[in-house]
Computed example of a mutant assay.
Amino acid sequence: MTARLGVGMVGHAFMGLAHSHAWQTAPRFFDLPLHPDLAVVAGRDAQRTAAAAQRLGWRSSTTDWRELLGRDDVDLVDICTPGDTHAEIAIAALEAGKHVLCEKPLANSVAEAEAMVAAAQAHPELVAMVGYSYRRVPAIALARRLVAEGRIGTVRHARGLYLQDWLSDPATPLSWRLDKQKAGSGSLGDIGAHVIDLVQFITGETLTGVSAQLATFVAERPVAAEFGGLSGVGDAGGATGPVTVDDAAVFTSRLSGGGLALFEATRFALGRRNAIRVEINGTDGSIAFDFEDMNVLHVYDAHDPAGLQGFRRVYVTEPEHPYTGSWWPTGHGLGYEHAFTHQVVDLVEAVAAGTPPTPTFADGLQVQRVLDAVERSAADDARWTPVEG
């Protein structure tokens, strides 16, 4: 029988749901070297956590995440909580001898992220991965492969946009995502971090400096009846509270290879529910991706003969493409949830092999340093600000 990998998860809301689905699905479609065992889920409310455990397939539940650290049936701690808790839980888990998967962004500050990296480096026998799941969309993984193979030549331009609209209504109530103490930042860290990571992942380069602007369009919002419980729903009798994070972020940057990069992240782009757009232009071609058509990668080859040049629409569902050979027949597309399943596959294989996963905590720290540089630049009238480290 395949050896088990005991998993304890902290948090059972949106990301907890996605991760639970992935832990259950991965061994059904992929031949994993270890079988995930959903041992325990932790949450703040006993009744809701117990209900989540039953609904999502966990064997037990607890209201104290520290309980996971002492359990012999937990080998890996999966952190799906707001950013202000990431460092404490991850460091404690590593010190307790547990592998760690931590949702993005890695932390709420560079200092916290550095402490997490130090803890991971102090325990090289353990796997510590940050959950930038969009890397595992097959079309994105194919884009990375094409760039690494030199198909588009030297990178000259990169564009990363993440556009949502769920906060465009001023009546939308406060939630933890609008509280800087809990979330670290707004659209910048919540969704901008994803496109920062994607551009760095696809190009194989890092951002070296930024010039940025941040904006908060709605400064006060209704206080939800259970805002203290972070439910984000309800009515507190007309009371309002301050929004302490950014609603939108835009910045220019430079890649380590000399190319230029442009980024935009907003939760106020009406009509854009979850639009992630990445385009990379090189000396020999270009690639373009839009998550609203997530099974497609557009590829331009500058060496095509005259009269036949143009973007080629590649439907990324062939067995030769990353991850897709374990799923459906050619032409049957994948969805949002599959990236989390692929994340589990790569994580379990890394644990079994004793090899570093990607992205590592160090990769998460690099993104955190970019986020920090963006905030510092925006506070200094968009002054060009180097990415430290």
Rank of each mutant, 00 (worst) to 15 (best):
A219M: 13
G43R: 02
A93P: 02
G234D: 05
V218Q: 05
G325H: 09
I91C: 03
G335E: 13
L68I: 03
A26N: 07
D165M: 04
Q181E: 15
L69S: 07
R151S: 07
A46T: 12
I276A: 14
D84Y: 15
G259S: 06
G43A: 02
G271N: 13
D363K: 02
L161E: 15
R145G: 10
D169M: 07
E375Q: 07
G209P: 08
T62W: 14
A362V: 04
A148R: 13
A46E: 15
R28C: 04
T208K: 05
T62Q: 15
G335W: 07
V351L: 12
G258Y: 03
R55K: 14
N295G: 15
A379Y: 01
A90K: 11
R221H: 06
A52D: 06
A120N: 02
A141F: 04
V245R: 09
E292S: 12
A39H: 12
M129K: 12
R44L: 11
F340W: 09
D363V: 00
I152D: 03
L126T: 01
E292L: 11
A288V: 15
S20Y: 05
G184D: 06
T216F: 00
E292Y: 04
I191D: 06
Y315S: 02
H338N: 13
F251C: 02
T63H: 12
L34M: 10
A92P: 02
I140Q: 05
G237E: 08
